[in-house]
Design a protein around this nucleic acid. Structure first.
Length: 799
RNA sequence: GCCGAUGUGGCGGAAUAGGCAGACGCAAGGGACUUAAAAUCCCUCGCUGGCAACAGCGUACCGGUUCAAGUCCGGUCAUCGGCACCA
C-alpha cells in the first residue's frame, strides 16, 4: 500500500497554501459555477452520505479547471436551526459557540477528503455580515407587500407549552415529551410565494432539471382550472365555491363549508339554542384536533348540518342542505364546496354516512358501488341543457351559462400556499420589523442592519408560545422608525429556509460590504451552471430559492430569472443493513474511519463506484478494498513504464475509448461506469505488460478528478509538474472504433455462431459469410427473412 | 388513497436508440509464490443436466407487440421515498 497518509496530507497542505482552487473574479475567462447544497453543521459531524454529492461536484469542478474554465466551487454553512438550539439549551452554551465548534469539525473533515472548494468564499448563515442581507431581502419583500401577517394554526405541545416545528411532531405527538400536540392560532409572518406560482411553473420549461424533480415542483404548485360558482342562500348570503367539475353542477345535492368558514357565524346566530350548541361543539372539536388527528379521521367523515340555512343551486333553483365538515379546508379555494357525491369520492363517502341523495350526471360508472370520477369518458345525463354532451363540452357550456347569468366564472387555483415565515425560536435571523400602535408594522431602517440577536439567559421558547426574545425588554422596546413614538420589536425569527434561499448569490462576492454581491460578479457568475443536492429538497428549498431569486430579478438586483441552469439529485447512501443511516439504528459510517484505513482517494473512488449516482445505494465496508487495489495497481504502473511505443494498436484504441467514456460519463453523472472503464483499461495495460510514459501521464490526468492526491504525487514524481495545472486529455474519434467487429449470427433468434468481420464490410457480404457459418442449421429449411443489424448481428428467420 | 422511483447472480451493480444479459468490483472456490501467513499473481464463478463438446432455462409475476424484449405496451405483486381529504 502506498503511503496515502503522507501523500494526502502533503498535497492538501500544498493546495491550501497555494490557494490552488481559488476562483478569481477574473471576468475575462469563461466561467463555470458548480454548486452543492451547503450542509447544516450538526454536532454529529459528517457521515458517508455527505461526500457523495461533494465528491461528484468536485469531479466536475476539477474536470472543468482542466478544460480551462475559471471555476467557482464554494462551500458554506446553513447553520441556524433547531438541533443547535436544543444542544445549547441542554448544555447552557451559546448557540454561536456550538455552531462554531461544529463548523470547525465539519471543515476539518471536509478538508481531509481533498475537495477543491474555494475556502476564501466560505459563507455562514449565522454570521451577521451574512444575515444582514437575509434581513435586507425580507425588508424588500415587505416593501413590495409580499410579506404580511396572518393568523395561522401552529403545532402546540400541551405539555412543553411551546410551538413545535413540523419535524418535531411525530405521529401527532411531541417528539420530546410524547404528549399531545394540538393546533393553536397565532399571528405569523407569511411570504406571498403564491404571487409567483404561475411563473415558478412556467419557467420550469427553461431549466435543465430531471423530469422527476420538475414533476415534484409541478405537483407541489398544483395548478388546476375550474370555476367559481355563487350559490345564494335562504338567508340572502352568497356562498362562493370553487370546483374543477362545473359540468357536474346538476348533481350537486348538498354543500359543505369548512369549520372556519364565516358563514358558520351567521348560522350560529340564527340557530335554535340546542342546534347552536351542536355547531359550536363541532367547530371547537375540529379546532382542537391536530393535523394528525384530522388525517386519521379521514376514514370516517363527520359533520353537522346548518338547519337554518339552505343553499339554492343556481341551475335548477333547488334548495339543498349545507353542512359543516372538516374534510373541507379553509385554506384552499373558497373554503366551501358544492358536493357532487356521484362523482367525487369524498362527497360519496359523506353522502353515504348522512344518507344524502346521489344523482348521476355523468353516465359510464356504477354509482351504486362507488363514485364515478373518470372525466375523460362518459356522457352527461340528468343535466338539462348539458345532457348528451361530453364532459369537456359540458365544462365549456356551463361556464358560459354561469357568466351569462352572473353567477360564476372560470378560475385557476393553486395548491401552493403562502410560506409561513415566523419561528418562535432564538437561533434564527430576527425579523427586522417593529410594531407601532399608530403606524402598524414598520420596517427598520436598512442602515440598522444587521439586526443582531441579543444575548439572552435562556434560549428556551417561552411557555406562552412567544420567542425567547420576547422576554427581553431591552430588545423589544424601541422607537417607531416612522413616527418616533414608543414601539415594540418583532420577536419572531426566520426559518432555516431563509438563509439557504440566496446563499449561492453571496458566494459570487463574499467580501462585499456594500451589497450582497456586486453587479459585475453576479453578472459573471450567474446562473449556477450545475447544482446538485438531495431529492428531499426538490420541493421546498428549490421552490423557495427560485421564488426569492425571481423576486430579486424583478427588483433588478440579479441578472437572471432562474438561479440554477441545471439541477441533479443524488441518491441516499444507506447503511449496510439497507436502512437509512441513523444514530438510533447504529448503522452510521463516519468518513474519517475510511480515510484512516484507506485514505481519501479510496473513499472518494468508492463513493462514486458504489452505484448509480441518482439512486440510493447501501454502504459496504467490505467492498471498499476493490478501490484500494485499483489505486495500488495504478501506482504500480511505474514498474512497467517504458519510453518507447510499447503498446499494441488494440491498447491504444482502448485508451482512446476510455478517455471518451470517462469524459462523457462525468457529464452524464455516470461516475460508476467511468471508474469501471478505467479499471478495465488498467487490466488491459497489465495484460499488455508495458505502458509508455505519455499514456501513463494521460491516465493520471483522467483519474485526477476522482483521486486527486495520488495522481498529483505520481505526476509530479514523473514530470516535476502539477497534474491540476494540465489540460484535460482529448480522445481521437478515429481510435475509438476498432477495425474489426464481432457479429452474432442468430437462427430464429438463437445464437448459433459468431463471426469477426472488417467494420467496413458491406452488410450483403456479412450476411453471406454468416449464412455459410450456419449452413448446417439452414439446410433444407426455407429462409423467410434475413435481418442484418450493422456491427451487431445477423438473424435468419427460417421455417 | 394519490404522486414519484425501484425490482437483474451469493452481494453492489453494467447493458447508446428493442439487437451477445451479467461489464467493473466484492465475496466464494482452486492454483502459483512462501517454512507459514498476509499481500500479490493466474484460473473458475447465473441456474439445471452432462465426463465433455453441448443442450435447456433465466432480468419480481401474468399476458401482449416484434425476426428479436431487462429495455416497448396492458395488468398484478413487492419495496423505498414524498404528500396527506387540495373540491
Amino acid at each position: 500500500m502506498y503511503d496515502f497518509k503522507n501523500i494526502e496530507e502533503k498535497w492538501q497542505k500544498y493546495w491550501l497554501e497555494n490557494n490552488t482552487f481559488h476562483a478569481e473574479n477574473d471576468f475575462s475567462k469563461p466561467k463555470y459555477y458548480a454548486l452543492v447544497e451547503f450542509p447544516y453543521p450538526s454536532g454529529q459531524g459528517l457521515h458517508v452520505g455527505h461526500p457523495r454529492s461533494y465528491t461528484a461536484m468536485d469531479i466536475v469542478s476539477r474536470k472543468r479547471r482542466l478544460e480551462g474554465y475559471n471555476v467557482l466551487f464554494p462551500m458554506g454553512w446553513d447553520a441556524f436551526g433547531l438541533p443547535t438550539e436544543n444542544y445549547a439549551i441542554a448544555n447552557h452554551i451559546h448557540p454561536s459557540i456550538v455552531t462554531q465548534n461544529n463548523i470547525n469539525g465539519f471543515k476539518s473533515q471536509l478538508r481531509a477528503i481533498g475537495l477543491s472548494f474555494d475556502w476564501d468564499r466560505e459563507v455562514d448563515t449565522t454570521d451577521p455580515e451574512y444575515f444582514k442581507w437575509t434581513q435586507w431581502i425580507f425588508l424588500q419583500l415587505f416593501k413590495k407587500d409580499l410579506a404580511y401577517k396572518k393568523e395561522m394554526a401552529v403545532n402546540w405541545c400541551t405539555s412543553c407549552k411551546v410551538v413545535l416545528a413540523n419535524e418535531e411532531v411525530v405521529n401527532g405527538e411531541c417528539e420530546r415529551c410524547h404528549s399531545e400536540v394540538v393546533r393553536k392560532v397565532k399571528s405569523q409572518w407569511m411570504l406571498k410565494i403564491t404571487a409567483y406560482a404561475q411563473r415558478l411553473l412556467d419557467d420550469l420549461d427553461s431549466v435543465d432539471y430531471p423530469e422527476r424533480v420538475k414533476l415534484g415542483q409541478i405537483n407541489w404548485i398544483g395548478r388546476s382550472t375550474g370555476a367559481e360558482v355563487d350559490f345564494k342562500t335562504t338567508t340572502g348570503d352568497v356562498l362562493k365555491v370553487y370546483t374543477t367539475r362545473p359540468d357536474t353542477l346538476f348533481g350537486a345535492t348538498y354543500m359543505v363549508i369548512s369549520p372556519e368558514h364565516p358563514l358558520v357565524l351567521t348560522a350560529i346566530e340564527k340557530s335554535t339554542p340546542e342546534h347552536k350548541q351542536q355547531i359550536v361543539d363541532y367547530v371547537e372539536k375540529s379546532a382542537k384536533k391536530s393535523d394528525f388527528d384530522r388525517t386519521e379521521m379521514a376514514k370516517e367523515k363527520t359533520g353537522v348540518s346548518l338547519k337554518v340555512i339552505k343553499a339554492i343551486n343556481p341551475v335548477n333553483n333547488k334548495e339543498i342542505p349545507i353542512f359543516i365538515s372538516d374534510y373541507v379546508l379553509m385554506s384552499y379555494g373558497t373554503g366551501a364546496i358544492m358536493a357532487v357525491p356521484a362523482h367525487d369520492t369524498r362527497d360519496y363517502e359523506f353522502a353515504k354516512v348522512f344518507g344524502l341523495p346521489i344523482i348521476e350526471v355523468v353516465a359510464g360508472g356504477d354509482i351504486e358501488k362507488e363514485a364515478f370520477t373518470d372525466c375523460a369518458t362518459g356522457k352527461m345525463v340528468n343535466s338539462d341543457f348539458l345532457t348528451g354532451l361530453s364532459v369537456e363540452q359540458a365544462k365549456v357550456k356551463i361556464v358560459e351559462w354561469l357568466k351569462e347569468n352572473g353567477v360564476g366564472e372560470t378560475k385557476v387555483n393553486f395548491k401552493l400556499r403562502d410560506w409561513v415565515f415566523s419561528r418562535q425560536r432564538y437561533w434564527g435571523e430576527p425579523i427586522p420589523i417593529v410594531y407601532c400602535e399608530k403606524c402598524g408594522y414598520v420596517p427598520i431602517d436598512e442602515s440598522e442592519l444587521p439586526l443582531k440577536l441579543p444575548e439572552v439567559e435562556s434560549y428556551e421558547p417561552t411557555t406562552t408560545g412567544e420567542s425567547p426574545l420576547s422576554t427581553l425588554e431591552s430588545f423589544i422596546n424601541c422607537k417607531c422608525p416612522k413616527c418616533g413614538s414608543d414601539a415594540k420589536r418583532e420577536t419572531d425569527t426566520m426559518p432555516q429556509w431563509a438563509g439557504s434561499s440566496w446563499y449561492f448569490l453571496r458566494y459570487a462576492d463574499t467580501t462585499n460590504t456594500k451589497d450582497f454581491a456586486s453587479d459585475e460578479a453576479l453578472k459573471y457568475w450567474l446562473p449556477v451552471d450545475w447544482y446538485n443536492g438531495g431529492m428531499e429538497h426538490t420541493t421546498l428549498h428549490l421552490l423557495y430559492s427560485r421564488f426569492w431569486h425571481k423576486f430579486l430579478f424583478d427588483l433588478g438586483v440579479v441578472p437572471t430569472s432562474e438561479p440554477y441552469a441545471k439541477r441533479t439529485s443524488h441518491g441516499m447512501i444507506l447503511g449496510e443493513d439497507n436502512q437509512k443511516m441513523s444514530k438510533s439504528r447504529g448503522n452510521v459510517v463516519n468518513p474519517d474511519d475510511v480515510i484512516m484505513d484507506y485514505g481519501a482517494d479510496v473513499l472518494r473512488l468508492y463513493e462514486m463506484f458504489i452505484g448509480d449516482f441518482e439512486k440510493p445505494a447501501p454502504w459496504s465496508t467490505k467492498s471498499i478494498v476493490g478501490c484500494k487495489r485499483f489505486l495500488e495497481r495504478v501506482e504500480n504502473l511505474k514498474t512497467i513504464l517504458t519510453d518507447g511505443e510499447e503498446y499494441s494498436e488494440q491498447l491504444r484504441n482502448n485508451f482512446h475509448k476510455t478517455i471518451k467514456k470517462v469524459t462523457e460519463d462525468i457529464e452524464n453523472i455516470k461516475f460508476n461506469t467511468a471508474i469501471a472503464a478505467m479499471m478495465t483499461l488498467l487490466n488491459d495495460i497489465y495484460s499488455n505488460g508495458k505502458i509508455n510514459k505519455k499514456e501513463f501521464l494521460d491516465f493520471l490526468i483522467i483519474l485526477n478528478p476522482f483521486a486527486p492526491h495520488i495522481t498529483e504525487e505520481l505526476y509530479f514524481e514523473q514530470t516535476g509538474k502539477y497534474v491540476h495545472a494540465q489540460k484535460w486529455v482529448n480522445f481521437e474519434e478515429k481510435y475509438c472504433a476498432d477495425d474489426t467487429v464481432e457479429i452474432v449470427v442468430q437462427v430464429n433468434g438463437k445464437i448459433r455462431a459468431r463471426i469477426t468481420v472488417d467494420v467496413k464490410e458491406s452488410s450483403e457480404k456479412i450476411v453471406e459469410i454468416a449464412e455459410k457459418q450456419v449452413a448446417k442449421e439452414l439446410e433444407g429449411r426455407q429462409i423467410i427473412k434475413k435481418i442484418a443489424v450493422p456491427k451487431k448481428l445477423v438473424n435468419f428467420v427460417i421455417k
